[in-house]
């Protein structure tokens, strides 16, 4: 090749770059439109039931709302309101009770003294409405309660408190647990003001299983902080060790991990055991410990 050719060519290079490159970049810009060439997924509004029962609780509480369809005629623009006119029936197979709506708390409530929750017992919950909606679910109360837990505190000078909650797994069965911790502090200028600061699980999960750890000592690491300063004083730690059933575990686990989808990742759905609806009907046994 001779040098003239190269000169000519480099001249052409320049021409091309100046002419075509901005054009290309301009054309690369994305475009947006409303989708009208496929059928969108539609659904009717569904009843959303929430009920967690325990032999250690004095109340049975049921929350009831409706889902709001994204697309289609079922969609409405109002906020979520409780469904007040439903018939909510709990049954242990032999005894049945209707749980009434409490307009003050906006929930369906009944005392366990009238309808006791018993260890190892299977319960069913049926919800029906005057418009013909009907959903139901079952759950079984874990047979035993965990009787003891120990807590290790990692000494940190700041208001960030770290703890490890330990307990003994029940051997030879599949067990699920949830650990909840709170730091209790008091606002000293007004000693009646007790502040509960939630502690958070370091692993992002609050529900645990004994998979591959059957019969072992299990632990959960929690940390949390409370308001700092001379006006606040730390008084106690509250720990709740819940021995939960599989429904509770699946639901809580999906709740802890819930994320919206985005174009590059998959959404995480919420678990439900409500036939024909959404939400959960679950059971647990509760150990509550307050440590100074």
């Amino acid at each position: 090749m001779n040098s003239n050719t190269i000169k000519n060519m480099s001249g052409k290079f320049k021409l091309i770059t100046t002419l075509f490159l901005p054009l290309g970049i301009f054309l690369l810009a994305g475009c947006e439109k409303t989708v009208d060439n496929i059928k969108l997924p539609t659904t009717a509004p569904k009843l959303v039931v929430g009920c967690f029962i325990s032999p250690q609780d004095s109340w049975i509480t049921v929350t009831l709302t409706r889902s709001n369809p994204i697309f289609g005629p079922g969609h409405n623009n109002t906020n979520t309101l409780p469904v007040e006119d439903a018939s909510v029936i709990i049954s242990d197979g032999t005894n049945t009770a209707s749980i009434p709506f409490n307009s003050l708390s906006q929930q369906y409530e009944m005392q366990t003294s009238t309808f006791p929750i018993i260890s190892g017992q299977t319960y069913s919950l049926t919800v029906s409405t005057p418009t013909g909606e009907n959903v139901s679910a079952n759950c079984t109360v874990p047979a035993s309660i965990i009787s003891a837990l120990t807590v290790d505190f990692t000494d940190t000078a700041s208001n960030l408190k770290k703890t490890t909650v330990k307990w003994q797994d029940i051997p030879n069965e599949i067990n699920y647990y949830r650990v909840v911790g709170q730091i209790v502090s008091i606002y000293t200028p007004s000693p009646g003001d007790t502040i509960f600061n939630d502690m958070y699980s370091i692993s992002n999960a609050t529900a645990y299983n004994d998979h591959e750890k059957d019969g072992n000592e299990l632990y959960a690491k929690l940390e949390g902080s409370y308001y700092e300063g001379s006006e606040y004083s730390l008084v106690a730690y509250d720990f709740y060790l819940l021995h939960i059933d599989g429904e509770y575990y699946n639901y809580q686990n999906s709740l802890d991990h819930y994320t919206y989808g985005d174009p590059f990742s998959e959404p995480i759905p919420l678990y439900t055991n409500i036939r024909g609806g959404l939400g959960v009907f679950a059971a647990y046994q509760k150990l509550y410990v307050r440590l100074p």
Partner: peptide, 22 residues
């Protein structure tokens, strides 16, 4: 995966006065 509907999720909060929220 697309969303079908939006809703209020029930949650169990031991240690709060009402025990349960949405």
């Amino acid at each position: 995966t697309l969303p079908l509907s939006s809703f209020a999720a029930p949650t169990h909060s031991p240690g709060t006065n009402q025990n349960q929220w949405v």
